[in-house]
């Protein structure tokens, strides 16, 4: 209980401190509210945006894109990583290409994505997919290739079928590392969605920020930023919870 309250109160104090510094910066900088809105203005702006429904609409649009792109990356990236982790021939063939594609920022794909998929959902989802796909493939490959070979000998000894080797050995063994990778990758996906929405769509939190800038409403811009941060925090906490599930708890204690 004491630990729980500490892990809640300490971060709360940090946030309060950050808001105080924000407020003080405004006091001493002498900037106008239109240029650098103060915390209270931002909170009222969030209230306005919630009241007229735009914030919910944009948040849902962004979350939808992240979910679509992220799931696509999971369903394609993790199986590919599993294959590469077990098959050294394929790994040798494909790894250089993956390492070549990986450092190209998803943002560099924006022109091509727009040309291929037009304006609307598809290019945004594609960019999020790209941002999560390569890190997931690389971490899954590493997780699978580092499984203790003894476990595969045990599997052979007890006559496990190919399917049982996947479901009883490979998947549970890689899970702790893959969940950590998912946690990091989801952060990247959330980072990229805002950038993607600034170019190709007319909804989402990225669009809200861009649109507000065009209207010179810096309070809405900052409201958008605050909401992005809050959702990012919530997603990370949810993924952290997933990492503590019983099925992967062994990873923390063994080895």
């Amino acid at each position: 209980m004491k630990i729980l309250s500490r892990s809640f109160i300490l971060p709360l104090l940090t946030f309060c401190g950050a808001i105080v510094i924000w407020e003080l910066t405004i006091c001493f900088s002498g900037w106008k509210t239109q240029v650098f809105p103060d915390p209270l203005t931002v909170v009222t702006s969030i209230g306005q945006l919630i009241a007229n429904g735009t914030l919910v609409k944009h948040t849902i649009a962004s979350l939808f894109r992240v979910t679509a792109g992220f799931y696509l990356a999971i369903f394609l990236g993790i199986p590919l990583g599993m294959v590469l982790g077990r098959n050294t021939f394929l790994l040798c063939a494909l790894n250089p290409l993956i390492q070549f594609m990986r450092p190209i920022s998803p943002l560099a794909w924006i022109p091509i994505a727009m040309l291929w998929f037009g304006i609307g959902e598809p290019p945004a989802v594609f960019l999020i997919f790209l941002s999560s796909f390569f890190p997931l493939v690389v971490s899954t490959t590493l997780a699978v290739s580092s499984i203790n070979p003894t476990y595969f000998q045990v599997a052979a000894n007890f006559n496990l079928t190919r399917w049982e080797v996947i479901s009883k050995i490979i998947v549970p063994a890689m899970l702790p590392e893959v969940i950590t990778a998912l946690r990091i990758t989801l952060g990247i996906a959330w980072l990229v969605v805002v950038a993607a929405e600034m170019i190709a769509v007319d909804s989402g939190l990225g669009y809200l920020i861009l649109d507000s800038r065009n209207a010179l409403r810096m309070d809405y811009v900052m409201a958008g930023m605050v909401v992005i941060g809050l959702i990012g925090l919530a997603l990370d906490m949810a993924m952290k919870k997933l990492g503590k599930a019983e099925a992967v708890a062994w990873g923390t204690f063994s080895q």
């Binding site: 476990y151 000998q153 045990v154 000894n157 007890f158 009883k168 549970p172 899970l175 063994s254």
Partner: peptide
């Protein structure tokens, strides 16, 4: 059946 030098119990089971 082979019994190993270091524990080969599957740690996730």
């Amino acid at each position: 059946i082979f019994v190993y030098q270091h524990s080969a119990l599957l740690p996730w089971m």
